[in-house]
């Protein structure tokens, strides 16, 4: 491929404070398709980047309600409809005895919704990312603090964005190819 396409630029920052500050400034300048990368979540970064809230709780709720419904229907249908059987003179179905299993299934499916929902929202698993080609970027899971701006951002301009990142204190600014 001769006509190489670029994915964006990547800059490294010295510490969480500088990264947070850079994110704030870029957001103020109007950038939206940029991302910060860090070894741990940084307090205040969501606001700095202007992110709206996470959708994970809705998936948790959806999972929980599904579990609740399955739990009640399962115990009612198997015990009172499909094969009614008198055991110890107890009723075929009653919410009292159905509570523990319904509760456990609600929790189980809430957890499924939360975990698998979180991975899905994050687009994981994602075995490859253009940033993997930047050797320095491997430090992001150790002590590296990075900020990337995607070419797809309407404000992106190779030279201007590069300079803005440099002014904000970004080091080792690299153009990342889209491969």
């Amino acid at each position: 491929m001769t006509s190489q396409k670029n994915w964006g630029v990547l800059a490294e920052f010295a510490n969480p404070a500088e990264l947070l500050h850079a994110a704030q400034e870029l957001h103020k300048l109007g950038y939206r398709k940029f991302e910060t990368w860090s070894p741990f979540p940084i307090h205040g970064m969501d606001d700095a980047m202007g992110l709206t809230g996470s959708k994970v709780p809705w998936l948790t709720l959806g999972g929980g309600l599904t579990g609740l419904t399955i739990g009640l229907l399962l115990q009612w249908w198997t015990g009172a409809v499909d094969y009614p059987l008198v055991i110890g003179g107890k009723p075929y179905f009653a919410w009292q005895f159905a509570t523990p299993v319904t509760f456990e299934l609600s929790i189980l499916l809430s957890a499924f919704g939360t975990v698998f929902g979180m991975f899905a929202l994050n687009g994981l698993p994602r075995p490859y990312h253009p940033l993997d080609r930047v050797a320095r970027f491997r430090r992001v899971t150790d002590d590296g603090f990075f900020l990337s701006v995607e070419v797809a951002d309407p404000l992106f301009d190779m030279e201007r964005t590069h300079n803005q990142l440099a002014e904000l204190g970004g080091a080792h600014i690299t153009v990342v190819e889209d491969k």
Binding site: E35, S38, I42, S54, K55, M118, N122
Partner: peptide, 10 residues
């Protein structure tokens, strides 16, 4: 890879 959007959901 430690993206902040991922950390937020995480």
């Amino acid at each position: 890879r430690g993206a902040n959007r991922h950390w937020q959901n995480y």
